[in-house]
Deep mutational scan, measured.
Amino acid sequence: TLEEDLKKLQLSEFFDIFEKEKVDKEALALCTDRDLQEIGIPLGPRKKILNYFSTRKNS
């Protein structure tokens, strides 16, 4: 689940933002850096999230 993935990244504090915006794993895989910025995710966590999901998509 998205919540489990965020826990792996030690970013579970952002789960509420994704839940509020109705972003699940499938939607997050389609998000850009700009999308994450617009919903209030800071730069460092955005980079970690985007890297994590891009490596999952390619495997």
Rank of each mutant, 00 (worst) to 15 (best):
D16Y: 03
I41N: 00
A29T: 11
F18L: 09
I49Y: 00
P42E: 07
L6E: 01
N58D: 10
R46V: 02
D24E: 11
F14W: 07
G40W: 00
L2I: 11
R34K: 09
L50T: 07
A29F: 10
K7Q: 12
K7H: 10
E26N: 09
D35Y: 14
E38K: 14
R46I: 08
R34W: 10
E4R: 02
E38L: 09
S59T: 09
E4L: 04
L28I: 04
K20M: 12
K57H: 05
T32V: 01
L11E: 00
K25W: 05
L50V: 09
N51L: 07
D5W: 12
Q10T: 06
Y52C: 03
T1I: 02
E4P: 00
A29P: 11
E38I: 05
L50M: 07
F15C: 10
L28W: 04
S12F: 11
E13Y: 11
L36S: 05
L50A: 03
K20E: 07
E13V: 08
D35P: 00
A27Q: 15
R46E: 07
R46L: 01
D24A: 11
Y52H: 14
C31T: 13
L43W: 13
I49K: 03
T32C: 02
E3M: 11
K20Q: 05
D24C: 09
E13N: 00
T32Y: 04
C31R: 07
E4K: 06
K47Y: 02
N58P: 07
K20S: 05
N58F: 03
I39T: 04
L2H: 01
N58R: 05
L28E: 08
T55D: 10
E13S: 06
K57A: 09
Q37E: 14
P42M: 01
G40H: 02
I41C: 03
E38M: 12
L30I: 15
N58S: 12
F15M: 07
S54F: 01
E4C: 00
C31A: 14
E21D: 06
R46H: 02
N51Y: 03
L6C: 00
F15Q: 09
R34Q: 12
T32H: 04
K22G: 15
R46N: 08
L11M: 08
N58A: 07
A27E: 14
K7V: 03
L2G: 02
L11W: 00
K7R: 13
G44P: 09
I41S: 08
K25G: 12
E26W: 09
K7D: 09
Y52E: 09
E4D: 07
K25P: 10
N51D: 14
E4A: 05
E13T: 02
Y52T: 07
R56Q: 13
E4Q: 09
L28A: 04
K7M: 03
P42F: 00
E38C: 08
K22I: 03
L30K: 15
F53T: 06
S54L: 05
L43K: 14
T1S: 06
E21S: 15
F14T: 02
K47P: 01
A27S: 09
D24R: 04
L6P: 04
E38T: 10
L50C: 07
A29I: 11
C31W: 15
G44C: 07
E19C: 08
L28Q: 04
N51I: 00
D5Y: 01
P45G: 08
E4F: 06
S54V: 03
E21V: 11
P42V: 00
R34P: 06
T55M: 13
N58I: 07
Q10C: 09
K57I: 09
S59F: 11
I49R: 03
Q37M: 11
I49A: 06
Q10H: 08
S59M: 10
Q10G: 08
C31S: 13
K25A: 10
V23E: 03
C31N: 05
L36K: 10
E13A: 10
Q10I: 00
Q10N: 11
E4I: 03
L30Q: 14
D33L: 04
K48Q: 14
P45Y: 03
S59Q: 05
R46G: 09
E3T: 01
Q37K: 06
E3I: 05
L6N: 05
K48H: 07
E19N: 07
E21K: 15
Y52A: 09
I39Q: 08
R56Y: 11
N51E: 13
K22S: 13
K7P: 01
N58L: 08
E3G: 02
K22Y: 12
E19L: 12
Q37L: 04
K57R: 07
K25F: 09
D24H: 02
F18E: 02
K25C: 05
D5P: 00
E3A: 08
A29K: 10
T55H: 08
S12G: 09
Q10L: 02
K22L: 07
E26L: 04
S59I: 13
Q37I: 12
E19T: 11
Q37V: 10
D5I: 08
E13K: 11
Y52S: 08
C31G: 05
Y52P: 05
D5L: 11
E13W: 00
K48N: 04
S54A: 12
L9S: 03
P45L: 02
K47D: 11
P42Q: 04
E19V: 12
S54D: 08
F15R: 09
Q37R: 05
P45T: 10
T1N: 14
L28S: 07
F14S: 02
D33T: 06
I39P: 04
K22A: 10
L50D: 13
G40F: 00
T1P: 00
L36Q: 03
E3Y: 08
E21W: 14
D5K: 03
I49W: 03
Q10S: 13
L2P: 01
K20H: 07
D35T: 06
V23Q: 05
D16S: 10
I39L: 13
D16M: 06
N58T: 10
R56E: 13
T32I: 00
L6V: 00
V23D: 07
L50N: 03
K57F: 06
K22E: 13
S12T: 11
K7A: 10
E21F: 15
I17N: 04
Q37F: 11
F14N: 07
A27T: 12
